[in-house]
């Protein structure tokens, strides 16, 4: 809800989040380094840095990727999502140390430009086990870099939400690249099967959670809304929505969030203007629909953010008949006022 940009919007919760995050990162670094020095006293400082940062970045990436599905499964995880971009930027910074150190260690002070060397030193691009794995890490790092530098809301608005979202969906591409980076790199050297086990477990966890929530989601959305009257579709019974709460429905290609509040029913577009959060999973707070992801607010009757903000959502006409909520899936212009439907008192 940009009135003016500040560098980072820190509040008590975000500070706590970042504090725990960096304690976690340091904790992981310290345990990893202590074990290395204990069990592998011959390790060099460079290898220690390369490996510590690699493990931390890869671990953080797993956490970043499971937060989305976890929130779908249990809304109580939502605070993790709220500040996920700090997690992402932190992960990038750690990965940057890994990649930078690897380039310095393996490619500088040689007869070729270090960046060119990443691509040309090992040029077995057709091989599997011999594949030049560092190239994959490099490409992944570029993706993470682009995501990190555009993580501020300024970019969400000025690159346009579609481009921004597309760019940030590339995190899945980056993850895939890194999995192959590890499989064709470190795992071609190490021979303890535990590494393959861990890598595969990670992949299974992430794809499994995404598939699971994806299936649940599509099942929810594909509920038939066959009952139609004068363009209105039946959504559900009144009791099905708690007071001050919402419900998401998908009718004739329209993604709609319906809210029940103070004896009224209203409907708005189910996609938040901020980062496309699911408005319907939000709540009415202080008379405003509040997005579950980062708390953007909209008035339920006209879909507008209260002044001084200026985000606007499309609105939909609603009706209540025989104890059921009905909605007309033809949207009105963003920010159009629609008189809320009064719930008849019985």
């Amino acid at each position: 809800m940009s009135v003016n940009y500040s560098p980072v919007l820190w509040n008590k919760q975000k500070k706590l989040y970042d504090l725990i995050l960096w304690i976690g990162i340091l904790f992981m670094a310290v345990t990893f380094i202590i074990f290395q020095v204990l069990f592998h006293k011959d390790i060099t400082l460079q290898t220690l840095i390369i490996r510590t940062t690699a493990i931390i970045a890869f671990f953080l990436l797993h956490i970043i990727l499971i937060i989305g599905p976890l929130c779908r499964i249990d809304k109580r995880f939502l605070p993790l999502l709220y500040n996920r971009r700090h997690l992402g930027v932190s992960m990038f910074l750690v990965a940057l140390i890994h990649g930078g150190m690897a380039i310095v260690q393996f490619h500088t002070l040689g007869d070729t430009n270090p960046i060119a060397s990443i691509f040309t030193a090992n040029s077995n691009y057709l091989a599997i086990s011999d594949f030049p794995f560092q190239v994959l890490g490099f490409l992944a790092l570029i993706i993470l870099f682009l995501m990190a530098i555009t993580s501020h809301d300024f970019w969400l608005k000025n690159l346009s939400p579609a481009i921004w979202k597309g760019l940030h969906m590339c995190v899945y591409l980056a993850y895939t690249l890194i999995v192959i980076h590890v499989a064709t790199g470190a795992l071609q050297y190490e021979d303890n099967p535990i590494y393959w086990t861990l890598l595969v477990l990670g992949v299974i966890t992430i794809t499994g959670l995404h598939l699971y929530t994806g299936i649940i989601e599509t099942r929810k959305l594909s509920l038939p809304h066959t009952l139609e009257k004068e363009g209105y579709y039946k959504v559900c019974s009144l009791e099905e929505i708690d007071d001050q709460c919402g419900k998401s429905v998908f009718i004739n290609g329209e993604n709609i969030a319906i809210f029940k509040y103070d004896g009224n029913v209203s409907a708005v577009h189910n996609v938040c203007k901020h980062q496309m959060g699911p408005i319907g999973e939000g709540k009415i707070i202080d008379g405003c629909i509040t997005c579950p992801w980062h708390g953007y607010q909209y008035l339920p009757d006209n879909g507008q953010s209260p002044p001084p903000f200026n985000e606007k959502l499309k609105t939909y006409r609603t009706s209540v008949l025989d104890g059921s909520i009905w909605v007309h899936p033809l949207p009105l212009e963003e920010g159009s006022f629609i008189e809320p439907t009064k719930i008849p008192q019985s």
């Binding site: 509040n11 008590k12 919760q13 109580r76 605070p79 709540k283 707070i285 509040t290 579950p292 980062h294």
Partner: peptide, 8 residues
């Protein structure tokens, strides 16, 4: 209901 900008 969790709202990020609230303090608790």
């Amino acid at each position: 209901f969790f709202v990020g900008w609230k303090d608790d």
